[in-house]
Nucleic acid binder design. Structure first.
Lengths: 158, 158
DNA sequence: TATTGTTATACTCTATAACTATA
DNA sequence: TATAGTTATAGAGTATAACAATA
């Protein structure tokens, strides 16, 4: 309390000014806005991730979806339970390996992506980076892609 | 994240290509590397946040630290317990308001920031964005600062 | 009456380990 | 033996509500 601190102009950068800190703040902000906008649908960022992976890759096993998102297979069970309960994905059987499901988007799931999630993403993007020039956006995306895909061969996680 | 997919660009952007997704991936990657590097000290990103806030602002109440990081005051109790247990911060009393603590960095806390955390941050930064030009870094920081400080007057959260 | 720190409690998210049915 | 999905369970991390001391 009474301690009078010195103000040593630090050679090391203040945390609040570091790229890492800003990055976290920006990511949190984006996710927060996104989930707030999705609140009516009670979906999480994570669920969007699953739908997006399926949209890009077609039918996948639960484990494979989890692998791509950095989520354990036991966790995937609950996630798919919810999405299946909402009719957005279906648990088909993989004929080649009857241990595994072939998770696929339902027609409703595809429609949800098309009519709700993608427009919502575009909206949140517009809110956040609408002020940036197309050049800035391209620049940002290029840099983020570098940061998000580590050279060390590590898995991408949510 | 995928392999070598080469698909027709859909009208709606693929999730994996969206700025929001990349942003999350990049932030996760940064935090992950940071915590891995800090593992020996068993500190979390969040703890670094507290120390950083204290370094920047001097002595603060628990509640005020929490407010600045978007953490509830009941959660702050545990965080400060840990940091105090490690001798990195001290619970002084605020003479002006005896309900509140005046949390401050100890000498050890300052030394830890100076000798460990800041160099570590610099190292992780170098790993991640070392390949970027100074211009790119400045650009990135400028954009991130925009994203991280919402105009809508919302609180910054960890 | 309002506020700081505290405690008890509960809820969410996640992973680990054991089980089942296949392979 | 090994693997996909499941289940039970445990551990973080966090928040809400009630309480004591102080404002």
């Amino acid at each position: 309390m009474g301690g009078t601190r010195r103000e040593p102009a630090p050679a090391a950068p203040l945390l609040a000014e570091s790229t890492a800190w800003l990055l976290n703040g920006a990511a949190r902000e984006v996710t927060l806005r996104f989930e707030r906008a999705l609140r009516g649908d009670e979906l999480r960022w994570r669920d969007y991730g699953v739908l997006g992976v399926l949209e890009a890759a077609g039918s996948l096993s639960q484990q494979e979806i989890g692998r791509r998102l950095g989520v354990d297979r036991s966790t995937m069970v609950h996630i798919i339970d919810v999405l299946e309960g909402r009719g957005l994905v279906a648990r088909g059987r993989d004929r080649a390996d009857r241990r595994a499901y072939a998770i696929e988007l339902t027609e409703a799931g595809r429609a949800f992506l098309r009519d709700t999630l993608h427009p919502l993403t575009a909206e949140v993007h517009e809110e956040l980076i609408g002020g940036l020039s197309a050049e800035d956006r391209a620049h940002l995306d290029r840099i983020l892609a570098l940061l998000a895909s580590p050279g060390a061969g590590e898995e991408r996680t949510m």
